[in-house]
Design a binder for these strands. Structure first.
Length: 828
RNA sequence: GCGGGAGUGGUGAAAUGGCAGACACGCAGGUCUUAGGAACCUGUGUCUUCGGACGUGAGGGUUCAAGUCCCUUCUCCCGCACCA
């Protein structure tokens, strides 16, 4: 080794210098532009969930964007025309709350944060196409939010109704069902209460079946967990509606049941205490005042109270009776809060023997329990445990002797024939409540006229921009701050010119994110939200990357929007995201990072201490991407060590660029091609940690080849180090670019292309076969990979150790799988 | 309660039913050094009488062969939660 190369070998790898060196070069080269018209490469749309601009990027962003970047950069290297865009989900409560706290304009706060995040993404070497950026709070974007809202409105998919809605007393706004997590506001963890309000909804329930059934297309491409969560959330149940005559009431009451077979076991009826029906039935019943008091009491209960598992059943007997249609039994009608007003018909037939909730209620209220399905379990009257399983029907007239399934079929047919019932579906999914009583969101483009009613804002008046927040009191007070802007609110009705008022609510920000992925290909289009031609080029999204926190909310809403747009003929596909990868969280010492817990790790500190590449590498190498990364257990300095090892190789290569690699030393060449092959497969199946392990192996093999093998001048060394640079470019772009230059190439290594794998080099010239006796390894032997079963078997049986071991034993069977294994089965 | 997922060295983790622990972190020892928080090398599942034996939460089963498939069970994590 001469003095120069010795110096070079010992020179420390200066990541800070390398970062500063290459960023301006890349700014100029712009390697990640997508969508040039003459581009002949096949397309790939790789999408990262866009960030909320709540401050600078944190460790979670670093993981998510490192993973998305690996995928995007890999497909570029594989020769695809990759669109990898980014934007900002910029409306929403955090901006508004921060603005209130600092007495600032949310708009200024938001755009400042966007600038900070954008600069950090550049530094983090994200391979984004910066020409496609937009923010959802840009009027040019939310204009199309309003346009889409009106499209839904015209189709009857956006409507207003009075309802008891989820209300967060802290945020002073309503919440969608999906935003209530275990009875708490998902933003601020305040217990959610109910409030009766007139609000805008999107009719997502119209799409329940399609949202459910189309998931078949996503099977195997989305995480099973997410599909399952969506299925549960939609919660389709199959059963029957059954009519019950009510004494002293003209109209019958319909109940929904999944167990029509247990109809003979119904001993009472329960109506939701907060329903219209309960109120009506209570009128003139003699228990009106008790009922009123009960209703007031349950209204005061928060969702948290309702969720308590061991909550005793409560209710009021309404002194009214329903008649069981199958046997004429007189069933007392009770009002209780254990029946939900907005599921099914808000009324149930109670079969205490076979439903635990009904049994608990029956026992609390001393109501009769009649067993109609013999399940061979203990009588629920005695055990207190309802028997919900299959069994033989008893005490059930025509159903006696049948099993559950037959009885359901028989009674359903009978009810249908008698006009007393029909099969029905119900869904856990509720319509999507989209009104919000806050400032920083898209104004709802509806005008309320006392003569014309709801009047859409004419499309030539879009965007309906937010009035300036300057001088506006944004403090939450239960109604939208927009109501105070009188010269904005009060306008003439576009239809009749009478004085009218604008709707003062803003849209849930999940509306913004339900279609943003359609906007990137057309981000500069001023005449439509997206063009069909652009969509045909790019959509659907080939690979979506984001946190599992959006498993229901964002992904369900996006699927809903896509289906609506499909019905409108605006898109040709019905699922927006072909493949989905959910990355885990970055935690510290086993729990989520937070200021209050004192375990917050600042991304900027980590980048300062270890460099961008080492942080990206650590994130990706830590384990499977779906698993959480515990930052206390990863070693960014280990990543630095590996990167400088790889970097040092690039200074050791002494052959010239373009040297004929096919003349290189064969075993290193084999290692190189195996690494390229295996790493590619690993990346395509999201096993990025394994891909990196393969690169590490190649680095180790190359180091060895240089130091004590073929030496630095062998063409195989250049081939290996170039392959390392290219493979590293998708994870550690700075290091890779620096290596690429030291290898005598011009930027950008990101576009160098994944080297073609020579299949011939994937076959080793010798492999080790193992010889087992009764499944225990007894010997090993080197064989040609092409050896036949019989040859391998013969060589195995000829081995001295095997001959010795087999002495005196009878061979019953020999299993041979050339060239890997021989298993000799003997009886002992 | 319902639904889903996961249990492998000191740690993060690998392993189309075919050599368990790849690749790392950590640790120990060494080489070279004025020095080492550099680089390089070696070792590192457990037990061992040094021949081996045992080993993927526990228990059973299928198989020539099981971390992997089946049954039972325990533990942990996630989602939903009075949805009739």
């Amino acid at each position: 080794m001469n003095i120069d190369s010795a110096n070079q070998a010992h020179a420390a790898y200066d990541f800070a210098y390398v970062q500063e060196k290459w960023l301006p070069v890349w700014d100029k080269a712009q390697p990640f532009k997508s969508g040039r018209l003459d581009d002949q490469r096949p397309k790939k749309y790789v999408l990262d969930m866009f960030p909320y601009p709540s401050g600078d990027l944190h460790m979670g962003h670093a993981e998510a964007y490192a993973l998305g970047d690996v995928i995007a950069r890999y497909w570029i290297q594989k020769g695809f025309n990759v669109m990898h865009p980014i934007g900002w989900d910029a409306f929403g409560l955090p901006a508004e709350n921060a603005a209130i706290k600092r007495n600032e304009n949310p708009k200024i706060w938001t755009y400042e944060n966007i600038a900070v995040q954008k600069a950090s993404m550049r530094r983090f070497a994200c391979s984004f196409d910066w020409d496609r950026v937009f923010n959802t709070c840009d009027p040019e974007y939310y204009r199309w939010n309003q346009w889409l809202f009106l499209q839904l409105y015209e189709r009857g998919l956006a409507y207003r109704k009075d309802s008891a809605v989820n209300w967060c007393p802290d945020c002073q706004t309503v919440l969608a069902n999906e935003q209530v997590v275990a009875g708490l506001c998902e933003r601020c963890d305040t217990p959610v209460t109910k409030k009766k309000l007139n609000q805008w909804y999107f009719k997502i329930t119209n799409y329940a079946d399609r949202l459910l059934d189309d998931m078949e297309q996503l099977e195997g491409k989305w995480p099973e967990k997410v599909l399952m969560m969506q299925r549960n959330w939609i919660g389709r149940s199959t059963g029957a509606n059954v009519s019950f005559v009510i004494q002293g009431r003209e109209l019958p009451v319909t109940v929904y049941t999944t167990r029509p077979d247990t109809l003979f076991g119904a001993t009472f009826m329960v109506v939701a205490a907060d329903s219209e029906l309960a109120a009506e039935l209570a009128v003139g019943s003699g228990v009106e005042s008790e009922f009123g008091a009960y209703r007031e009491k349950i209204k005061a209960d928060s969702d948290i109270d309702r969720l308590a598992t061991d909550r005793p059943k409560s209710g009021i007997f309404l002194d009214r009776y329903a008649i069981n249609p199958v046997n004429g039994a007189k069933l007392p009608i009770w009002a209780s809060d254990y029946v939900l007003a907005d599921y099914g018909t808000g009324a149930i037939m109670a079969v205490p023997a076979h439903d635990q909730r009904d049994l608990d209620f029956a026992r609390a209220m001393k109501l009769p329990v009649i067993v109609v399905v013999d399940t061979a379990e203990e009588d629920p009257n005695i055990s207190g445990v309802a028997t919900g399983g299959d069994g033989i029907l008893i005490n059930s007239g025509l159903l006696n002797g049948m099993n559950k399934a037959d009885a359901i079929a028989a009674i359903s047919a009978q009810l249908e024939k008698d006009g007393l019932g029909q099969s029905a579906h119900n869904y856990r999914l509720r319509d999507w409540l989209v009104s919000r009583q806050r400032y920083w969101g898209t104004p709802i483009p509806i005008i309320h006229c006392s003569f014309c009613g709801e009047v859409p804002v004419p499309s030539d008046q879009l965007p309906l921009t937010l009035p300036n927040a300057q001088g506006l009191d944004l403090k939450p007070k239960g109604t939208s701050p927009l109501g105070a802007v009188t010269d904005w609110v009060n306008i003439k009705c576009p239809r009749c010119a009478a004085p009218a008022k604008r709707d003062t609510d803003t849209m849930d920000t999940f509306v913004d994110s339900s279609w943003y992925y359609l906007r990137y290909p057309s981000s500069t289009n001023h005449s439509e939200p997206f063009s069909k031609k652009d969509l045909q080029t790019w959509l659907p999204v080939d690979q979506y990357v984001g946190g599992v926190t959006h498993a229901i909310l964002h992904l369900l809403y996006s699927r809903f929007f896509t289906k609506v747009l499909n019905d409108m003929g605006m898109v040709d596909f019905n699922e927006p995201f072909t493949r989905l990868l959910n990355q885990g969280m970055v935690v510290m010492d086993g729990s989520a990072m937070s200021k209050s817990r004192g375990n917050l790790v600042r991304l900027s500190d980590e980048l300062e201490n270890h460099g961008v590449d080492a942080i990206r590498l650590s994130m990706v190498f830590a384990g499977p991407p779906e698993d959480d990364v515990d930052w206390s257990g990863v070693s960014p300095s280990g990543s630095v060590k590996f990167l400088s090892r790889a970097w040092r190789l690039s200074g050791d290569v002494t052959s010239a660029p373009g040297v004929d690699c096919t003349k290189g030393e064969i075993s290193l060449r084999r290692a190189t091609h195996k690494a390229l092959h295996d790493a590619g497969i690993a990346i395509e199946s999201f096993r990025f940690n394994v891909a990196i392990a393969r690169v590490m192996e190649l680095v180790n093999a190359t180091r060895k080849a240089i130091d004590s093998g073929c030496g630095p001048a062998d063409p195989a060394v250049r081939e290996a180090v170039e392959a390392i640079a290219i493979m590293l470019s998708i994870v550690a772009p700075f290091t890779a670019e620096e290596m690429w230059e030291r290898l005598g190439h011009k930027p950008c290594v990101a576009l160098a292309g994944w080297p073609l794998v020579d299949e011939k080099l994937l076959v080793a010239d010798a492999v080790e076969a193992v010889v087992q006796i009764n499944g225990k390894i007894k010997a090993r032997l080197d064989v040609a990979p092409t050896i036949s079963d019989s040859e391998l078997e013969a060589s195995a049986l000829a081995l001295a150790t095997i001959v010795k071991a087999l002495k005196g034993a009878t061979i019953t069977k020999i299993i041979t799988r050339a060239p890997k294994i021989v298993n000799i089965v003997i009886n002992s």
